[in-house]
C-alpha cells in the first residue's frame, strides 16, 4: 500500500511542478509516522521555498530566521532533550548565510537532525547562484555560467564529516524512485540516531528545481543523475559507531 502519511496535512502544496520539496516533505512525514514520534516532533522550517513547511506537516513547526535553524534547534534540544528536533534547510540557508551556525552545531555534536536540500540555486528568490551552484551553471546572477571567480561548489558532506563529533553524514538524491527510497532510509537513520542519543546527523539531498534550471521535471531528474551527482558524489560520508 502506498498511502499518504497521517503527519502530512491533506492539502495541495505550493511548489512548482516537479519540485523535490514535495517528495522530501512526504518522506519526512512518512518517517515521523513510522517511528511514532509525531507528538515529540519540533520541526524548524527555513527561509526559502520550504518556509511554509508548517502548512504541510501536521506536527509542531516553527519558522527560523535565514540560516539560523541549527542555533534554534540547539536551544530547543538542550532544553527539551526528550523532543525530536529536525531542521529542514536549503543550500543558501544552510551553507551560505547559515554556514557558521551549521558548523558550530556540528562541532558541538548537537543531538539534532538536519535535512539539507541541495538544488544548486536560490529557488524562492528566482534562481540566483548558491554556494552549491555547479561550475558553468547559468543562474540569474551568473548569466554566463558560474566561473572560478564565483568560487567552487561547497561540498557540505565532505566538510561536515571531517568534524570529530559528527555522527552521521550522507548524501542522497531524488533522481529516481530507487534513490528516493535510499533518501528515505538515510533520513530515517538520521532521526533514529537522535532518538538513540547518538548526536549530530545531516542528510544532504540533491533535489530538482526545474523552474530555476529551466527544464522539464523529468529532464531535471536526469540533470541530477548526469551532472549534479557527478559534482556532489552520493554516499555515506560518516557513520560513527
Amino acid at each position: 500500500m502506498f498511502v499518504l502519511p497521517k503527519s502530512l496535512k491533506p492539502v495541495k502544496n505550493h511548489y512548482c511542478p516537479g519540485c523535490g520539496h514535495g517528495i522530501v516533505h512526504r518522506l519526512f512525514a512518512e518517517i515521523v509516522d513510522e517511528l511514532g514520534i509525531r507528538e515529540k516532533m519540533i520541526a524548524i522550517a527555513p527561509v526559502g521555498c520550504a518556509v511554509f513547511g508548517y502548512f504541510y506537516w501536521d506536527f509542531d513547526t516553527l519558522e527560523a530566521a535565514h540560516g539560523r535553524p541549527p542555533a534554534v534547534a540547539t536551544a530547543i534540544k538542550r532544553l527539551m532533550p526528550e523532543k525530536v528536533v529536525v531542521t529542514y534547510q536549503g543550500d543558501g540557508d544552510l551553507i551560505a548565510i547559515g554556514g557558521n551556525e551549521c558548523l558550530h552545531a556540528a562541532n558541538r555534536g548537537e543531538n539534532i537532525t538536519i535535512f539539507f536540500l541541495n538544488n544548486t540555486c536560490y529557488g524562492m528568490t528566482g534562481g540566483q547562484m548558491a554556494p552549491t551552484t555547479i561550475p558553468g551553471q547559468k543562474t540569474t546572477t551568473t548569466a554566463q555560467g558560474r566561473t572560478s571567480l564565483d568560487g567552487n561548489p561547497i561540498k557540505v558532506c565532505e566538510l561536515i564529516s571531517s568534524i570529530d563529533y559528527v555522527t552521521y553524514v550522507a548524501r542522497t538524491s531524488l533522481h529516481s524512485p530507487e534513490n528516493i527510497l535510499e533518501t528515505k532510509r538515510a533520513m530515517k537513520k538520521a532521526i533514529q540516531n537522535q532518538i538513540d542519543n547518538k548526536g549530530f546527523s545531516l542528510v544532504e539531498i540533491l533535489s530538482m528545481c526545474p523552474t530555476s534550471w529551466k527544464m522539464e521535471p523529468y529532464d531535471a531528474m536526469k540533470y541530477i543523475e548526469n551532472v549534479v551527482s557527478k559534482e556532489f558524489k552520493l554516499g555515506v560520508y560518516k557513520d560513527r559507531k
Binding site: F2, V3, G20
Partner: peptide, 11 residues
C-alpha cells in the same frame, strides 16, 4: 514515490 504533489496513492 516520485509524485512531488502527494496526488497519488496506490491501494
Amino acid at each position: 514515490i516520485v509524485c512531488p504533489d502527494c496526488a497519488i496513492e496506490v491501494l
